[in-house]
Amino acid sequence: MSEFVSTAVTSEISAIERQLVERVKRGDEYAIRALIERHRLRLIRTATNLLRDRYEAEDVSQEAFLKAFRTIHKLRDDRAFPGFLYRICVRLCMDRLRSKRPEVAELDPSVPHQSNSVDTRLVIDRLLELLPYDLRTTLVLREMDQLSYEEIAEVMAVPVGTVRSRLHSARLRFRTIYLGEMGQL
């Protein structure tokens, strides 16, 4: 019974979504606002996880919405809008990460460490900064956004095999860096 209700709700949501996308294609500003309202939280969360900066994440999310609405006529299946928007956002984040760090920096041992839980987030931020942007994006999408291998492959426009190997490298490097970091504490 509950499964039936949940299926009905899902199909109703996708019908609303489709209607909104159709209206956006006709230039309806109300529909634009409604779509922003529906998707902005998820977009900002993902962008913050990837960029580790709330303000930059909002900026990228706005850019993603803008790009999505400007190219919405290319969308053949109106139900695919969330994926389309999410892909644009992740790719914009990757562009930012790529332009931010052309090379992998080393951990600076002179920076003092404080071993309390408040700094956990900072430690994670620094660990992620030491990963190349493609490994970092793959790891964040898998571990934080809980995307499947296939979904990551679609978002990053790479084969599933590449996702597997990137994830392997990312986890390996992450744990090596983490071990090194813990050794310094």
């Binding site: 956990t120 992620l128 934080m144």
Partner: peptide
């Protein structure tokens, strides 16, 4: 990885 998941953004 637990810390990474735990530090996921909650906006």
């Amino acid at each position: 990885l637990d810390l990474l998941r735990g530090s996921a953004c909650t906006v």
